[in-house]
Design a protein around this nucleic acid. Structure first.
Lengths: 350, 350
DNA sequence: TTAATTTAAGCAATCGATTGCAATAAAAAT
DNA sequence: ATTTTTATTGCAATCGATTGCTTAAATTAA
């Protein structure tokens, strides 16, 4: 079973007393084959159960209709959605996707990059792992002439194609909303600051406070409250302060926000009256919790499509060594019950 | 940028006045190269920024360390988890994953199969699209000598490797649990019956009723209530019956169960006292709803690992044309508030 | 009928790495 | 000192498809 020989164009050629080149031309449907022999070739190809060997074809043609994607985790909603979006577009173009997960580890990320370079993929799409520090592997990609598109978690200083969310603006929107709802002491749960997205979200938080002349209180800013558990732990600390916050912006994720909600509920705090909660990502569950959680939608599927389109429109089509574009997608604040201190009726319905 | 030439083993050979074969041997780290020249070769390889061309290597070696995966949707929790599980194992073995989504369309599924055959993948892993009818494309895979592993949604009569959940048993467990809780009229939301998994779940429902001498009431069985919306619609119909059910088993998915919950809540029915609800899949949100939803965990990540291990242990390692194994994983009933009519305190805590 | 043009098919090199076999050099055994 | 063995390295074919170039055949023009 394993070592069964597969039919090649030579088998077809031999059977028809033709040359392999004619078979190749007939199958590639291009040029210079008479209709009669083309039909003959197509028929025997079907009869012999012929399937092209893409390895050989790609080797000869010097390229691979394949795009490599590296994400921290495949089974995280956001990334799964982005991948689905990419796949949607690439499929139309007859391209394939090779998907790797770095598991949030940069050493593994480096290995993924290596594999993809070896595979001669046409393009590499990447979102960095949490422990990102060194961009040497990204440089290597470029040294090998492979187009590189970074998204979401990017190495900012590196001059490549990028598809981003405007995290700072989203963050400003969220905090401004909290302020407008009358919250006075707004805490921030922040993510690893080596990642651009978390730096930007923090910047947005600070900018919004500043604009409204709110003081910046270091004790209300909690580092590295990434997961539900860490979010819960930080919330306990925050709520046991002498002057606890009356709102928490979990800028890291909705999971973190969920941790906040659970702790608050357990401590008998009323949400949103006594504590406002805002998450990030618009995970499906934020709509379902009680109260439902205000959050930020990142348009993940459409980000994926944007990435793929960027490749096909800007990179693949032009032979020029064109300057990398940066596309920024404005996320949208989804206002739900967990932050409607003033007018709980005022829900956005869509 | 695009057409930049990459260093090959010939470049290295030329620079060192050696033959390409020696370079190949040195790099593959195997045999018959003196330590001195090996070091020399390794050094210049690094210096010239050499990366192997897997296309050429795989073409020559006649195989591709790649496993193709076809799923209905990449960004559906269950499938994303399975893929993550597969990836976890294959990564360890140095294999790559090519992932395709059929988008629940069998015509697209056929095209995915074609691409993967062309790519000479070492194995194809598939879960069928919802409109599955014809298994010709699966036969084609076998005709080309490519090992095939089906999982979850499978063509049962086809003799291939399979990794399954015991859907029937899970279903029996769920319905039995409902009966034990004192529910008397248990409705079923069923999925497309062309898919084995939904047939099995229905069979389990029927078996459990029969065992407890419950009558089977056709008006309590709703076809094709797959999504949240369809689940909601079916629920409305069920609850407006002269004798409405006092429990609904949404065997299709947790999303469907969510639709049930929302309709029940809206109609002022108390869950679990007046209506019991059980879902399927253990989606993250089922833990969060109020009340939390009883459901069935499919061990998706570990299913993925099982699939990959099956390949490495049973297929790749043995040269024999061995008989396909079927691995069945017993899912677990997760009992939560939505079905605890008798003793709401009696929650399983883990 | 002959020359010019178009069309169809074959030849052979190529993509880059691998590998069985042959050849040479070095080391060990006699 | 000579033969045998072993360790290195080179040669050349191979994997399967593609493609520029050449040749042969068929069609059209003169």
């Amino acid at each position: 079973m394993k070592n069964q020989k597969r039919t090649t164009i030579y088998d077809i050629a031999k059977k028809l007393n033709l040359n392999a080149s004619s078979v190749s031309r007939a199958l590639s449907n291009n040029s210079n084959v008479s209709e009669a022999t083309r039909k003959l070739i197509l028929d025997t190809a079907k009869e012999l159960n012929y399937k092209q060997n893409s390895l050989a074809s790609n080797l000869r043609k010097g390229h691979n209709q394949t795009i490599g994607v590296i994400v921290p985790r495949i089974n995280q909603n956001y990334f799964a959605d982005v991948i689905a979006g990419i796949e949607e577009v690439t499929y139309q173009k007859g391209y394939n996707l090779v998907i790797c997960q770095s598991n949030e580890s940069s050493s593994r990320e480096v290995k993924c990059v290596d594999t993809l370079i070896n595979q001669h993929v046409s393009c590499i799409v990447i979102s960095l792992s949490a422990d990102f520090e060194d961009d040497k592997h990204l440089q290597t990609i470029r040294e090998h002439g492979i187009p590189l598109i970074q998204f979401d978690r990017v190495a900012e200083h590196l001059d490549t194609f990028k598809v981003l969310n405007d995290n700072e603006q989203a963050s400003i929107d969220a905090v401004t909303h909290l302020i407008e709802q009358g919250y006075k002491r707004i805490a921030l749960l922040e993510g690893p600051q080596n990642l651009n997205i978390f730096r930007q979200r923090k910047a947005g938080y600070l900018a919004a406070l500043e604009k409204h002349n709110f003081p910046i209180l270091p004790e209300l800013i909690k580092e590295n409250a990434w997961t539900k558990e860490l979010g819960a732990a930080s919330t306990k600390e925050l709520l046991s302060l002498p002057e606890p916050p009356d709102a928490i912006f979990a800028s890291t994720s909705d999971f973190s926000a969920l941790g906040v909600l659970e702790v608050a509920t357990k401590m008998g705090l009323k949400v949103p009256e006594e504590l406002g909660i805002c998450g990030y990502s618009n995970e499906a569950f934020t709509e379902i919790t009680s109260p439902s959680i205000t959050t930020i939608d990142q348009y993940s599927v459409s980000m994926g499509k944007t990435i793929a389109n960027l490749y096909f429109q800007e990179i693949e089509s032009s032979d020029k060594d064109n300057t990398p574009k940066i596309v920024s997608i404005k996320p949208k604040l989804i206002i739900r019950s967990s932050t409607l201190k003033n007018n709980p009726e005022d829900l956005t319905t869509d």
